[in-house]
């Protein structure tokens, strides 16, 4: 199934410099009013890695990824995609990236097929390639039967999948996926994991944010734990988790577990 998705292309992206990190985040920071959402985050995503970004709700994952992908202007810091500065040369950097933002709307009055085609044409690709790849992507994500349905009528999981297809259409060198598995059914999630694994295997790099530790531990080779806008730990999954599971290590780093005997009235017996 993964063979259906175009592998990351080198010839289209002459800007990519060999040997540099796929994504390099240096001291990114952002504040909204009084609240410091991201407080100086540094991350190095090595080329060909499958990088997990985990953290509790409100940790600043989405804000960090938005700043790294050129969607939100940072107050401080820098983001480099294969050595290209996202904020100094946005158009070049964006050619290298496929982005699945979380919590944004889609042009949902287009059909699924039209939306993916639109994303491809916006990238300046020619129509034949776009149509061919759109067909492949819809098939790989099991959306062929709904290709002509308006995206506004899609379920939450289908919407996620069509947004993912829009991010893959131009065969980027780096995929930035914010919560790609949210509300996606288990079968589709497994298909998506296969696609991403094949993509990484062929030389692409992926950074995903997720709440699901188990998924990150099985899927990713690198991980960063982020809380309150700061990176608490980063490295290969084995380095970060040590002897424990990733979930145990995460709870240890982030804290906040309630160990008291609360809610005694909730027990039915």
């Amino acid at each position: 199934m993964s063979s259906l998705v175009p592998p990351p292309s080198d010839e289209n992206n002459p800007e990519a410099k060999a040997g540099t990190a796929a994504l390099s985040i240096r001291g990114l920071a952002k504040r909204f009013g009084e609240k410091i959402a991201v407080n100086g985050v540094d991350l190095e995503v090595p080329p060909g890695s499958f990088y997990g970004l985990v953290g509790p709700n409100g940790a600043g994952k989405t804000t960090t990824l938005s700043m790294a992908t050129g969607l939100l202007r940072p107050d401080f810091g820098q983001a480099l995609v294969h050595g290209v500065d996202v904020w100094a040369e946005p158009l070049e950097a964006k050619k290298l990236m496929g982005i699945l933002p979380d919590g944004v709307r889609l042009f949902d009055r287009l059909t699924g097929e039209q939306l993916v085609t639109y994303a491809g044409l916006l990238r300046g690709m020619d129509r034949e390639t776009v149509m061919e790849r759109t067909g492949d992507l819809l098939r790989a994500l099991d959306l062929t039967g709904d290709a002509g349905t308006l995206v506004v009528d899609y379920s939450a999981g289908m919407t996620k999948k069509i947004a993912l297809a829009s991010a893959l259409i131009h065969a980027p060198k780096l995929l930035v996926l914010d919560e790609p598995f949210e509300s996606v059914d288990p079968v589709s999630a497994a298909n998506i994991r296969d696609i991403l694994a094949g993509y990484v295997h062929s030389g692409g790099s992926v950074i995903v944010s997720s709440h699901v530790m188990d998924l990150v531990q099985r899927m990713c080779d690198h991980v960063a734990v982020i809380a309150a806008g700061t990176v608490l730990a980063a490295g290969t999954v084995d380095e970060v988790r040590g002897e424990a599971t990733l979930e145990e290590r995460f709870v240890e780093l982030v804290g906040g577990r309630n160990t008291s005997e609360g809610l005694s009235w909730l027990r039915t017996s």
Binding site: G112, Y118, R123, A147, G148
Partner: peptide, 28 residues
């Protein structure tokens, strides 16, 4: 459920970014 195959205006406008935006805006 509806199968695809109909690109609508996106199939008729020039396949450039500006053309695609025009097609999308007209669809809207």
């Amino acid at each position: 459920k509806r199968a695809g195959g109909n690109l609508g205006w996106l199939g008729r406008f020039p396949s450039t970014p500006a053309g695609a935006i025009a097609a999308r805006a007209l669809t809207y």
